[in-house]
Simulated assay, not measured.
Amino acid sequence: MALRWRTIVFAILALGGLGGVGWGTARFLLDDPRFYLATVELHGRSFAPASQVEDRFVSDRGRSLLRVPLEERRRAVEQIPWVRSATVTRVFPARIAVTIQERVPVAFLWTDDGIALIDAAGMVLDFPSDASFTFPVVRGISAGESPADRRAKMELFTALLNDLDRGDRRLRDEISEVDVSDPQDARAVVTDSSGAILLHLGHQEFLTRYLLYASRIGEWKKKFANLQSIDLRFEGQVVINPDPPRTPTASRPVAGSSSRPPSP
Rank of each mutant, 00 (worst) to 15 (best):
L161D: 00
W220L: 14
L201H: 03
S181G: 11
D192C: 03
P147T: 04
Y213V: 12
Q204K: 13
Y213F: 15
D179P: 10
W220Q: 10
L160I: 04
E174S: 11
I217S: 11
I175L: 12
S194G: 04
A143I: 11
L207N: 04
L199V: 09
D182L: 10
E205R: 13
R172M: 03
I217Q: 11
S176L: 12
R150C: 06
L199Y: 06
Q184N: 15
G140W: 10
E174K: 07
G195P: 09
M154N: 06
V138K: 04
S193R: 10
R209K: 15
L156A: 00
Q184S: 14
L212W: 07
A186T: 04
V189M: 08
S194D: 13
L156H: 00
S142R: 10
T191E: 13
H200Q: 09
A159C: 01
R150A: 07
R169E: 08
D179F: 09
L156W: 01
G144M: 13
A186M: 04
R151S: 15
E174L: 14
R139L: 14
V180D: 05
A143N: 04
A196F: 07
V178G: 10
I197K: 03
L156T: 00
A159D: 10
D149S: 15
A143H: 07
A186Y: 01
G218C: 09
H200G: 01
A159F: 01
S146D: 12
